[in-house]
């Protein structure tokens, strides 16, 4: 159902609510929530959330709760992405975490994420009763699903250069040649 692997639990396909519990481990009744889980990083972690949210147009709310992730400021970063988007370098505008860059998802997905979900800021709250109350309130405010699913493959990485053929020797990298006794020298020296 959700295309990108991550540390999450899938609940009800009917629910319109996703919950990001940041650094806190909190569980919810599966019938009330579409997907929930922890979220540690301000870059790859956010990319996974965005990819999974836009794959399910039925999700219309994203609750941020639990304790903020120290250093990474993942909650503040995803809020900034939702409010401001990214700049030309992929940096989340206004994010104060360590390395708040988005590189593996498309501009279309980011735009759709920002439009698709209403973000509910409960950062710092980890009491399940308080969050459940909010889930109940949002469940009563159903919205129409938005458009078609956007399914993204994880971005194709630049592949390593083809290794040169050198009998009896091992290439560790295109610039490095390792002889059978593991002496390392620049490739050009032996070509």
């Amino acid at each position: 159902m959700y295309p990108w692997r991550g540390e999450f639990t899938v609940g009800s396909p009917d629910s319109q609510i996703a919950i990001d519990t940041l650094s806190s481990r909190i569980d919810f009744p599966p019938k009330d929530v579409a997907i929930w889980g922890q979220h540690k990083t301000e870059n790859l972690g956010i990319e996974k959330i965005v990819a999974n949210v836009v794959s399910n147009p039925n999700i219309r709310y994203l609750i941020l709760c639990g304790q903020e992730v120290r250093g990474h400021r993942s909650g503040q970063s995803i809020k900034s992405l939702h409010s401001n988007g990214i700049d030309g370098n992929g940096r989340i505008i206004g994010a104060t975490g360590a390395v708040p860059y988005i590189e593996n998802i498309t501009a279309e997905a980011i735009a759709r994420f920002r439009e698709q979900v209403e973000l509910v800021d409960m950062i710092g709250i980890a009491e399940i009763s308080v969050i459940a109350e909010k889930v109940k309130e949002l469940s009563a405010r159903r919205k129409e699903p938005i458009g078609e699913p956007i399914i993204m493959e994880f971005a194709e990485r630049k592949k390593a250069s083809r290794m040169k053929s050198l009998s009896g020797k091992v290439s560790l990298h295109k610039d490095l040649l390792v002889d059978p006794y593991l002496e390392v020298r620049a490739m050009e020296a032996d070509i």
């Binding site: 870059n43 370098n89 992929g90 940096r91 390395v99 860059y101 988005i102 590189e103 593996n104 990485r157 630049k158 592949k159 390593a160 990298h173």
Partner: peptide, 22 residues
């Protein structure tokens, strides 16, 4: 050497050598 655009060895080197556009 962390370069979110390119996790290859070359991407990591690029971060240190040129700033990789960041």
């Amino acid at each position: 050497g962390y370069n979110p655009k390119d996790f290859s060895v070359d991407g990591r080197i690029d971060m240190i050598e040129t700033g990789a556009g960041y």
